[in-house]
């Protein structure tokens, strides 16, 4: 039988960890808390959580440093708790490989929704590890061998770069991808400042894939941060 999904909550504010422990536990998650990055890493090594929810500003080892350290040893999904006014740090955390963020103060439903998405992503990644020959979301489907993309069964012609970008989006469905991360993954490290490339290519993809490009269903904009492929 599958064990309860494990969530490690890292925040230096004891009252908040108290609430999150109770709120998440009541929804069937197993929860442990840590007050700083160093003890979070210790717990992570012993306990192997399925998801890490971390604050950014903490004593000793902050959220950024924790993201960096975790990414060096694991691909566990990381959810960042950031306050308004910490935008720069938040984007840095996402650049370092955090998956998503929730802005403080937040309602528990919002956090639970993000937790579900992040956990689903690891699950699908794990189950499709065998031999993924195609990726599918809604009516959008990519055949990885023939590189044919179809929407509602109709073939859509994409340029090679458009295809690479869409593939990267779908492989990281649900995850917030910063401009830098997308540019580095699709165009290469020397293009990380060329945000206009992204705008143009995302615009073209939306025209070709979305029913209403002005109100996209697949590729969502995360204002001032990047984009997120919506797997729902």
């Amino acid at each position: 039988m599958e064990h309860k999904p494990r969530i490690l909550v890292v925040d230096d504010e004891p009252q908040l960890t108290r609430v999150l422990r109770t709120g998440l536990s009541s929804h069937g998650y197993e929860v442990r808390v840590a007050a700083d990055g160093v003890s979070a890493l210790e717990t992570f090594g012993d306990w192997h959580p399925d998801l890490v929810v971390t604050d950014l500003a903490m004593p000793q080892m902050d959220g950024l440093e924790l993201c960096r350290s975790l990414r060096a040893i694991s691909s566990v999904p990381i959810l960042v708790l950031s306050a308004r006014g910490e935008e720069k740090t938040k984007v840095e955390a996402l650049d370092l490989g955090a998956d998503d963020y929730v802005t403080k103060p937040f309602g528990i439903e919002e956090l639970l929704a993000r937790v579900r998405v992040a956990l689903r992503r690891t699950k699908t990644a794990a189950s499709s590890e065998a031999a993924p020959t195609f990726l599918e979301t809604g009516e959008l489907r990519i055949d990885l061998e023939t590189r044919i993309v179809t929407v509602k069964g109709r073939e859509v012609r994409l340029t090679p770069k458009e295809f690479d970008l869409l593939l990267h989006f779908m492989r990281n469905a649900g995850k917030v991808l910063t401009h830098r991360v997308l540019l580095a993954a699709v165009w290469g490290g020397e293009y990380v400042e060329q945000n206009e490339y992204l705008r143009v290519f995302v615009g073209q993809l939306r025209k070709k894939l979305e029913t209403d490009p002005a109100a996209p269903r697949y590729i969502l904009t995360e204002p001032w941060v990047g984009y997120r492929f919506n797997p729902e």
Partner: peptide, 17 residues
């Protein structure tokens, strides 16, 4: 904001339930 965050999280947990 720190106490507000805890309050909001607590209240929404109760509301959600």
């Amino acid at each position: 904001r720190t106490p507000l965050t805890s309050i909001k999280a607590s209240v929404t947990t109760l509301l959600d339930d």
